[in-house]
């Protein structure tokens, strides 16, 4: 029982990280309508930029802000250079998907070229584990959960209460219609890339902290867990992604503790496949995006 609680606790930390990434990716997918294989590498990129800023003498939290800004910029530039021209040409989803794979190659290996293939560590420590009720958390974990919660809440408020949020939701529902209503969908798409880039950078930092190491493949290896979360939640449904993250985070930790950690990756993939086959609209009831 105690062990189970611990696993759930670890799962919560995982879920916080996954949720940030999954919400970011889900946001992008809901607006652009293609799945992004480079997203994991965006996470690594954010974590590395943070690392570099930190190593250059900046404090940790400002460094994270720098990493987030850098990754947001990376998203915007990728959209500008790679995806926008193709979407204008009405390329098929498959072609865009292949392009994201190319982008993934580029980002991941540029990281290798700049920072080398070996693991790096942040200079901050997460502190000693302490018991909170049945759970076992480090202060770092708590901060991570807090940050994730705050960011997601902020995003929620932003989406619901600003004109831009409305425009974004309209675009993700039906971009032709949104355009006809006078919404500048190009700008919406650009900001979507920026926001999703920033979210995934923070997720990348969290991931590196949590595993206490940062490699060029860190993000890519997490990509399918993130896919698992957004598929569970229903592809392109932002709030579903949060739920999906929670489910998959706790599930992988429980399986790691009670079955074997080596198969927790395989578990995530199995979840992806089974859910896609049986409930392609995600776990939540209601209309999935049929796109």
């Amino acid at each position: 029982m105690n062990q189970l609680a611990e696993a759930v606790g670890f799962g919560l930390v995982d879920a916080a990280v996954i949720a940030l990434a999954a919400v970011g990716l889900s946001l992008q997918v809901s607006v652009t309508n293609f799945i992004n294989f480079a997203y994991g590498d965006f996470m690594s990129f954010g974590a590395y930029v943070t690392y570099a800023a930190n190593a250059a003498g900046l404090n940790f939290f400002p460094s994270v802000a720098v990493g987030a800004a850098g990754t947001g910029l990376l998203g915007v530039v990728s959209n500008w250079v790679v995806f926008r021209p193709l979407m204008r040409r009405k390329s098929r989803t498959l072609i865009l998907l292949i392009c994201t794979v190319g982008l993934s190659f580029i980002v991941q290996n540029v990281i290798v070229m700049i920072w080398g293939p070996n693991a790096e560590h942040y200079s901050v420590t997460v502190g000693n584990a302490l018991h909170l009720g049945p759970f076992l958390f480090t202060p770092g974990d708590l901060i991570l959960i807090g940050v994730a919660f705050t960011l997601l809440l902020a995003l929620h408020l932003f989406m619901q209460n600003t004109k831009f949020g409305t425009a974004l939701r309209a675009t993700s529902n039906n971009d032709d219609l949104a355009q006809a209503c006078g919404i500048d969908t190009g700008r919406v798409v650009m900001w979507t890339w920026a926001i999703s880039g920033m979210l995934c950078a923070v997720a990348g930092v969290g991931l590196a902290l949590e595993t206490n190491s940062l490699r060029p493949t860190t993000g890519f290896n997490e990509l399918f867990v993130v896919f698992g979360a957004i598929i569970l939640g229903g592809i392109g449904r932002v709030y579903g992604a949060m739920l999906g993250a929670l489910v998959i985070g706790i599930l992988t930790e429980i399986s790691a503790m009670f079955i074997s950690p080596v198969y927790s990756g395989a578990l995530a993939f199995t979840v992806v496949i089974v859910v896609l086959l049986l409930r392609p609209q995600g776990l939540l009831p209601g209309r999935g995006r049929s796109a």
């Binding site: 799945i35 989803t93 998907l97 896609l276 086959l277 392609p280």
Partner: peptide, 10 residues
């Protein structure tokens, strides 16, 4: 069951 991009993920 799957559209082609989900099939790629699978």
């Amino acid at each position: 069951r799957l559209r082609s991009d989900y099939l790629a993920i699978v």
